[in-house]
């Protein structure tokens, strides 16, 4: 080995450490903006129809129930949101859901493992963004959807095919960078 290449090899560990540092910094930045989620898992249902299900409505919320039949042959893309009153990130994402709802985007809700009275209180205090609303107290339908925590948000196209799933709160960044482009792409 020539002395020059030997000297270059001396710096190799530093180069590796520096590359690791840069990658780690990028990861932290991604975690800050919500672009990178180390615990994120891709949904197994992407590209498939929503699972077959019927759920009771949330009584007192004055909204029709949501079932699989309501997710076929739609006028446009829709969002299905799994949430609960006991879930703190659901409070974080709530203003974004309200905004979408006010803009006319159909947002369907499923209250996951929540006491109906608590769900109603949450919606009374903060507003109800859901056009259709059901409750899944046993949490079995959520398992059929592959839900592993709340909140989780699914975007379905007009045919009712699941195109996107987001596990975690819909932040303004997620709304602008993911949901809005997807709504445009699947509009027709």
């Amino acid at each position: 080995m020539s002395p020059a290449s030997r000297r270059a090899l001396l710096f190799a560990p530093f180069a590796v450490a520096a590359a690791g540092g840069v990658a780690f910094y990028g990861m932290l930045q991604g975690m800050k903006t919500g672009e990178y989620n180390p615990r994120g898992v891709p949904s197994a249902l992407i590209g498939q129809h929503a699972p077959d299900f019927t759920l009771p409505p949330l009584d007192g919320a004055d909204r029709p129930a949501l079932s699989a039949a309501d997710l076929r042959n739609l006028p446009g893309p829709v969002l299905v949101n799994f949430w609960a009153s006991w879930c703190v990130p659901c409070i974080i994402e709530h203003p974004q859901l309200m905004r979408l709802s006010n803009e006319g985007v159909p947002v369907f809700g499923i209250a996951y493992k929540d006491k109906p009275a608590d769900s109603l209180k949450f919606l009374r205090e903060r507003g109800n963004p859901f056009r259709r609303l059901s409750k899944d107290e046993p949490g079995r339908v959520a398992i059929d959807w592959g839900v592993y925590g709340v909140p989780e948000t699914y975007l379905l196209d007009r045919q009712g095919i699941i195109r996107w799933r987001f596990a975690g709160p819909v932040t303004p960044d997620v709304l602008d960078q993911d949901i809005r482009p997807l709504l445009r792409r699947h509009a027709s």
Partner: peptide, 9 residues
């Protein structure tokens, strides 16, 4: 940040 599956979990 996400909630675990059960209330109080």
């Amino acid at each position: 940040m996400r909630c675990p599956q059960t209330p109080g979990g």
